[in-house]
Nucleic acid binder design. Structure first.
Lengths: 222, 222
DNA sequence: GTTTCATTAAAACGTTTGTTTGAATCATAC
DNA sequence: GTATGATTCAAACAAACGTTTTAATGAAAC
């Protein structure tokens, strides 16, 4: 569990964040103790409370650190699209790429920890912890709203509720593709040594196929 | 936390399993204590260890109880298809329905706890706990193998690796559609009060759209 | 050199954790 | 009724938990 490589890299604060990010991803929030974090980071036990206050605030900071950048990058990509189109309607595939492609590019960064974080984020989507949910929702609100609005504009003939559902499904496919430990991997042998460069184009074409699929018909209630 | 409605329903064993299932879904394995389980079930603290041995074995039994039935139902649906086709090739959409539709029908059973279990299963796919992974993989192995073989036969012109990827993506979309607490729900307001009858046809058409999407092309490595 | 303030350190705090114990209770068989 | 085996019960166990405390250490300001 202990891994103290000379204490060379970074200050105490970011050492704690890096260690926490990885351990939360591997063991969940409740499965990761303060002592695991501080020994992995090579710092004193009290350092977490000193720098972050409580464990919950540490969790919050682990997300905030990366999520702010991710959603900023997504919005920048969307604005670039809108600027390029100069008033014309956007292709849905470009919008999807601005949102999901940006996340996949972050997940492809294994070295800098982007991959670890995206795995953590993926598993957190299914963690109904009220405290984390609330925080994630606030952090995502503006970004999701803007992208949904863009999709509504790009697909004016499609019922907005259907677009919402499909966005939901796309989120799921992506999260699981990144974070899913997956029964399959253990049955069939690992795919490609977690090489994310293989994942991105395959997932994008799947997502677009789902987005463009003919709408379902309902026998039942409206 | 305590909810002891007269101790009317079922024996101690199944009362514990029901309580554990719900609490694991809501709080995760580490976030759920023995005391939470036993007080929710209205039984003595020592009852879990008496009936199941350890917490880990209880977790195992929570999954085994439902997963055996689910995968049995999936395989029965597949065999019914094969019988009906009488040697002819199966439509991929029917195979997908036999696997994912069966799960969705289980998730639609709110009363009997099927919905709770599917939520738990969904969040467990992204929980890399080695003990749980191992168990899930064993429990899934045969079923997944049979369905993949059926898809390979139904789509002989498609590279098997691509089919494997898309199965992976479909698993993700479904898991998240059921278990995902989702930034969206908090941004946009809940969809339809978790009514699973709305979910199934929408998800199925999304899955089939993704499955049929044109294959991605790679600029990069094979 | 001394003061000052931010950081680190070791030790302890009271709770809660999963599990075990040994006696009490129950239903069934003789 | 009494013996038997399974189950339930209250109580206690050591270990681990998040957090706090108080003293030691560090570097910069005067």
């Amino acid at each position: 569990m202990t891994e103290v490589p000379g204490k060379a890299a970074g200050d105490t604060r970011s050492r704690i964040l890096d260690a926490a990010e990885r351990l939360f991803m591997e063991n969940g929030f409740d499965g990761t103790s303060m002592r695991m974090i501080t020994s992995q980071a090579g710092v004193n036990l009290a350092a977490v409370n000193y720098h972050f206050g409580t464990k919950e605030l540490l969790i919050q900071e682990v997300f905030r650190r990366r999520l702010t950048d991710l959603n900023r990058a997504r919005l920048a990509a969307l604005e670039a699209l809108e600027l390029e189109a100069a008033g014309a309607s956007l292709k849905p595939s470009r919008i999807v790429d601005a949102f999901f492609g940006t996340a996949l590019r972050m997940a492809a960064d294994v070295e800098g920890g982007g991959h670890t974080f995206m795995c953590l984020l993926g598993r957190t989507y299914t963690e109904p912890n009220e405290f984390v949910r609330q925080f994630l929702a606030e952090e995502y609100a503006e970004c999701v709203e803007r992208f949904l609005a863009a999709l509504y504009r790009a697909l004016p003939e499609v019922d907005r509720k259907e677009i919402l559902w499909r966005f939901h499904f796309m989120m799921g496919a992506m999260s699981y593709a990144i974070a899913g430990t997956d029964a399959l991997q253990l049955v069939t042998g690992k795919f490609d040594d977690e090489n994310p460069s293989q994942l991105a184009p395959r997932l994008m074409s799947f997502l677009l196929g789902g987005l463009r699929a003919p709408l379902a018909e309902f026998g039942g209630l409206k």
